[in-house]
Amino acid sequence: MSEDAGPTVSRRGLLRGAAGTAIAAGGVAAVGTAAGQSGVDFDGWFSDVSNFDGVVDRRGQGEVTVEVGVEGNGDYWAFGPAAVRVDPGTTVVFEWTGEGSAHNVVAENDGYSSGDPVREAGTTFEHTFEETGISKYYCDPHLAVGMKGAIVVGDMGAGADAGGGSPGGISLSEGAWLLVGSLGLAVASPLLFAAFLRYRRGGGPSGPSEETREQLQRVDEVDQGPPRAEEAPVEKPETTIEHDEYDPSGTLSLVLGYLVLVVLLWVFMYFVEFLGRGPTVIG
């Protein structure tokens, strides 16, 4: 398990980096203050976790429960609560809700893991947190969608508000939403403007310019309603060729050339690319 987790996480790291860029574009202030004031610096861990709503204080309890599979991140792909503050020596019981497919609990750095993902409601996994600090964990199948949590052990940074700014996931998607929306509006705006102009033109007395009107009167006696459009003259062919005197020899050579190309490519694709590479399904 750990062999695979390593590279997987590092790729997610890249992903987080990209997400971080987006937040920088969307709401620099919010994220910047999050680390400064709350005193708990999750280092972007919760930037894509939709149900993160600050650190929930559960100090003074010997046993604390975190639900696995609460609503969040687009489905039941979240820990509830996402971040909890406990006293050192507290046992945290992770309890499966049975929602949102199979989950597990895997520590980012601290070595504990509930093993393979399971879905059964009522499944539990316990871990006792002795050391002061932040212990981050995630659900392996749903890491990419933001199913992450953290246990804050001890009083570090507890004096300030636990909030930590707006949750990153939302600010990010709002930013993207705004960007996409404004781009869409930008493209649609000339259309809207055109519609507006047409509407106004239809309502008001303004029509074609005097010049056009005169020109049209010369062309056409009618000056009622909108001006008539005049089509371009019909093209006259240089020579007229009728059905019986026309042999599409160029066409025949073109389509035969295409045929040869298609047959060669087909043979290459079927016998070299397809049958030449294995393994293949044989039963």
Binding site: R277, P279, T280, V281, G283
Partner: peptide
């Protein structure tokens, strides 16, 4: 490779490969 199948809930995809 040419081992390629859909996995559809309710159905079992069965494929033999050497």
């Amino acid at each position: 490779t040419n081992v390629n199948t859909m996995v559809i809930p309710g159905q079992v995809a069965e494929l033999t490969v050497d």
